[in-house]
Design a protein around this nucleic acid. Structure first.
Lengths: 140, 140
DNA sequence: TCCATTGTTTCGAGTCTCGAAGTATTGAGC
DNA sequence: GCTCAATACTTCGAGACTCGAAACAATGGA
């Protein structure tokens, strides 16, 4: 019976996530960003093919109308632009603008600097990553 | 330079948290609960002294007006009751009702059953807990 | 050509979060 | 014991987030 350990781990995950959000809030506000828009920006890797709405929704575990709303936020702030996917004209992809790439890089930097997880050293991080990857993969 | 590892760990934490929320949604809805109200219920340990609004706000990393809102949700649903703290009559504590204890136990059970973290075995959980405790304590 | 399916958006409603201002109680200093 | 700044909470108003239902556009198979 591993319930107490599991409980503690779930609680700790929640705590770290909420604390991170809290610590990041002021920096996000400086860029007129919110947790939701930052998460959207986070999952658009500027080095990869721009994701469609559908892909973004899967990455953020939200539904289509919500994604439209979040995308509008990014577009309105000049951080991303919609483009029709030439392979399937039903599909719209989100492309980061120059400003979008800039803001993303800056906020990712701040997030990594402020996250409570930053107290761990290289070896601990690798250990943690191994465990978490097992979790995220087994239910990808 | 441990940036890539830290990035992966932060992303995985976010992913696990969002996925947990997503998996839990339907079960919460069955009890007219939402992520926010469940988190509030979660941090009220029925075996400990009822927490004040202030303490709850600290645990949930939210501000006082928000806590009032969430508390109202719990009270309206018959899961908790407000009581004046006799030691400091400015302070209000949240006491779980019988129904509140029931719903809490049930939802905690479901959460532990559905969390992606449940794929880990006892040894892995202890390892993970050690790492996460170091994180949560160092910036308590 | 027809039409069921897929990807996205629009609309309306409800939930969540916050800052500013208001109320009640406390405790320190005189 | 009075005064008053500080503390704990609530109210109010506004904005952000999320979702289901319905509409729209493009696709692809019959």
């Amino acid at each position: 019976m591993t319930t107490p350990e599991l409980t503690a781990v779930v609680a700790a995950t929640h705590d770290i996530w909420m604390r991170t959000n809290d610590l990041l809030g002021p920096s996000l506000a400086e860029h007129q960003m919110t947790p939701a828009t930052f998460q959207a920006l986070w999952v658009i890797d500027p080095d990869e093919k721009p994701p469609s709405m559908k892909v973004m929704a899967e990455r953020l575990y939200c539904n289509a109308p919500n994604l439209t709303f979040i995308s509008n936020q990014l577009v309105d702030r000049g951080l991303a632009e919609r483009a029709v996917d030439p392979d399937d004209r039903r599909s719209r992809v989100l492309v980061l603008t120059a400003k979008g790439r800039e803001v993303r890089a800056e906020l990712v930097r701040v997030a990594l600097e402020k996250t409570p997880l930053a107290v761990l050293d290289g070896s601990e991080l690798r250990q943690l990553m191994t465990l978490l990857e097992r979790v995220t993969r087994s239910a990808g």
